[in-house]
Structures are given as C-alpha cells and as structure tokens.
Simulated scan of single mutants.
Amino acid sequence: MASNHQEHRIKGVHRVTKSRKNGPDRQYHYAFRGGPKFWDSSMAFDATDARYVSAYDAAMKAQRDMRIPAADSKSTSLALQRYRDSAEFNGLAPRTRDDYEKFLTSFEAEFGEDPLAMFQEREAIGEIREWRTKWKNSPRQYDYAGGAVTTFLNWCVDTDHALEFHHHKGQKKLYSSNRAQVIWMPEEIQMLLDEARPEEKAVVVAFSEGGLAPQDVGLLRRRHVQTTPKGRRLFFARKKTDNPVSLPVTEALGEVIDSLPEGQDLLVTSLTGKPLTALRASQIIRDLKIRHNKKVDDGLLKVRIRDELRPYDMRGTAATALLRADCSLNQIAVTMGWGLRHAANVIERYAALVPEVSDEVHRKLKKARKKVEKAERKAAKKEAKRGGA
C-alpha cells in the first residue's frame, strides 16, 4: 500500500494502532473519538486515496442520520452535531477537542432529546449545574464541564444563530491554581538525578532541561533533532496547543540523544523500552521524589525535596533559567512553545522569582541615582559661580 502521494489529513480523525502477534500492526481510523470506523489498513486503498475521503464522508453522513431524527430539527443533539462538524470545534487543539468531547458526550446524553431553546430559560442554569455535580469531587473537572457547555452555547448564539441568547455565562469557578511561585530549585533536580537509575535519568533530563510538558516527553523522536549552525535543536509541535517548539540541545540532552541504542527512534521511553505516556512520565518523577524523601526520613540524607513540587512545575524552572540567561521574550516564547502574549504574562509572574532581575534593577537604580547626583552637583557649581560674580 505504499504511495508517493501525501496522506489526506482530515481534522478530527481518531487514529488507533493495534499490535498483532502474527503479522504487522493494524491501523484503524475513526471519524472522531468514539465515532464510527471508516478505514483500516486491511483495505485495498490507503490514506492517500480519494476513496479514503469518500469513506470518511459516508461515515459522517451515516452517523448524523443515525443520531439525529430528521423530524427533530431543533433538538440539542442536532445543534451538538453541527458544533462538532464546525470549523470552530475542529480548529481546536487536539487535546482540547478530546477534553471537550468527553463533557459534550455526557451533556448530550442528559439533554440531547430536549429542544435547544430550553437554554434560553433562566431555569436551565440549575439543570446544567445539577448535571455538573457528576464532577463535584473534582473542582477542576466541574469547572471544565461548565466551560465546555458555555463555549457550545456561545457558538449556538454567535455562529449557528440557533439561539438568540443563553444565561450560562459568568459561572463562578470552584478551582483556582496559581503555581507561578512553585518551581524546582537546581539542587532539587540534582537530587532527582542522584536518585535516578540510568533508564530514569532521561526522563528527568527531558523534563528539567527543556521544560517539556508530560504529554510531550514521550513524543520526541530522532527526526525532531535538527542541526543548527552552532549545535543542535529539538523542533516539534506541542501536543496540547500544536504550537511549534525550538529547544536547544544542551549537553545533558545531547548525552541522552547520543546514547540511544541503535534502532531506537524514541528519544525517551518507558523503563521497559516502550512508548512513554504522559501519566507514566509524571509518575517516574514522583517515584524518584518519594524514594529520595524516604531516605531523608530514614536519616540517610539531610535535605528533602519539597512535597508540593509536581513534574509540570519544571516548566517554570526552565522559564526562569531562560530569564537568567537574559533571553528575549520572543526567544522564551519559541523555546517554551508559548504565544507571545501568554509568554509575556507568564514571564511577568516568574520574573519576581529570579534574583538576577532584582540585581539588575538595583544596578540600574544606582546608575540613575548617580546620574541625578552628578547633574545636581553640576547645577550647584553653576549657581555658585553666578553668586560669586
């Protein structure tokens, strides 16, 4: 099934690879996560063929016909299907789209048969709030469920025009988190490295040197390593946002890359050599912290790694390292995979944690004061001369 033509990249397609004991891996493509399968690698055509697109279109039409009765043209289910087919929904980052789908599927099971117009009634807020109590023990999920519904209803008003208005706006959030001041200190990262076995060190390095998010650590492959005029870089797109990242290959990252076994494509794997999931990558860091602190509790070591530290907090550590290196806002944004506006907001919070920033401010203040004092002395001398005349 080899082809020189480029694969059709349809937004929203959910791709699954299943290993088989006897024979090559089998590829399955679904119209969306949880949707109908429209292609697999046993078929007579591949994903570069026009029949691939036709199969996708047929699956989507059948799904719409099956899920939405033609006579029920004003149902919430129909509006949800239009939203799922919309450019706005399919333009979301894959991770965001998957997260929204989880809550929208539950929302549809609860309200799908109801008329969409019910959400123009103020009483609907209470019904939505009652549905959200499924996640009452997880404030973050509770808030996310409400946010996904608000986004959908906004689309119904602003784009689909199926609603004139809705009341599910400005809902109070339960979850709040500001971890800008929680970053790993260099000595704490060294404690992890000292505790890590050889197969664990690559995970620590990937987190700490590049400030990678857990979902990105296991995605890095040899093709992401590129030669630059004065070294190497890792160039890839973040899974959550699809933003490009240009990460310099430091000495520590270089050692990880150069020590890869021959034939291994993934830069960082699980401890058994398999693809590394975001959950497992984070768990390896947590396990190292637990092992180190257990030795402190047993009197073998003196200094603990702070209990509140999380693997994701290493992104803040990487950002402050870039600040210390006097990198520009654009350089920090590209390296971290952030937009410029987001980078400016984040750096504004992290700047207070970098002592060198305070030193630089102090230096500039001293220089400014000396300039003012010099001007005042010069003015005093002039005034003295005038008085003497």
Score class of each variant (00 low, 15 high):
1 M>W: 14
2 A>Q: 14
2 A>W: 10
5 H>A: 14
6 Q>E: 13
8 H>Q: 15
11 K>P: 05
13 V>H: 08
13 V>N: 07
13 V>W: 03
15 R>I: 09
15 R>W: 15
20 R>G: 06
23 G>R: 08
23 G>F: 10
29 H>Q: 05
32 F>D: 01
32 F>Q: 00
32 F>C: 09
33 R>V: 06
33 R>I: 10
36 P>E: 10
36 P>F: 03
36 P>R: 08
39 W>E: 01
39 W>N: 05
40 D>P: 10
42 S>C: 10
43 M>N: 02
43 M>I: 04
46 D>I: 10
46 D>E: 12
48 T>A: 14
51 R>F: 07
55 A>V: 09
58 A>G: 08
58 A>L: 11
60 M>N: 02
63 Q>H: 14
65 D>A: 13
65 D>L: 12
66 M>S: 11
69 P>E: 10
70 A>W: 02
74 K>Q: 11
78 L>S: 13
78 L>K: 15
80 L>I: 15
82 R>K: 14
85 D>S: 06
86 S>G: 00
87 A>N: 14
88 E>W: 03
90 N>R: 15
92 L>C: 07
93 A>V: 02
94 P>S: 04
96 T>E: 01
97 R>T: 02
99 D>I: 06
102 K>R: 15
105 T>I: 07
115 P>S: 08
117 A>V: 10
117 A>I: 11
130 E>G: 02
130 E>N: 11
133 T>Q: 15
137 N>G: 12
140 R>W: 05
148 A>E: 03
154 N>R: 15
156 C>S: 10
156 C>H: 04
164 E>M: 12
168 H>I: 09
170 G>D: 12
171 Q>M: 13
173 K>S: 13
174 L>F: 01
178 N>H: 06
182 V>W: 03
182 V>H: 05
183 I>R: 06
183 I>W: 02
189 I>M: 06
195 E>R: 14
204 V>R: 01
206 A>Y: 04
211 G>N: 01
213 A>N: 05
227 T>P: 02
228 T>V: 13
228 T>C: 08
232 R>A: 14
234 L>V: 08
234 L>Y: 03
238 R>Y: 09
245 V>H: 01
246 S>V: 05
249 V>P: 04
251 E>D: 13
252 A>Y: 02
255 E>G: 12
259 S>W: 07
268 V>A: 03
269 T>R: 09
271 L>A: 04
272 T>L: 10
274 K>Q: 08
274 K>E: 13
275 P>A: 04
276 L>F: 07
280 R>L: 13
281 A>W: 01
283 Q>I: 01
285 I>L: 09
285 I>Q: 00
287 D>Q: 12
287 D>R: 15
290 I>D: 13
294 K>E: 15
296 V>E: 02
299 G>P: 06
303 V>N: 01
304 R>I: 02
309 L>G: 01
313 D>Y: 00
313 D>W: 00
314 M>V: 05
317 T>L: 00
325 A>T: 02
328 S>Y: 05
333 A>P: 05
333 A>C: 08
337 G>N: 03
339 G>P: 03
344 A>T: 11
345 N>H: 13
346 V>I: 14
349 R>E: 06
353 L>G: 07
356 E>V: 09
358 S>A: 14
360 E>V: 08
361 V>L: 09
364 K>H: 12
367 K>I: 06
367 K>F: 08
368 A>Q: 12
372 V>R: 14
372 V>T: 14
373 E>W: 05
376 E>N: 11
378 K>D: 09
380 A>S: 12
381 K>P: 02
381 K>Y: 07
386 R>P: 00
387 G>T: 11
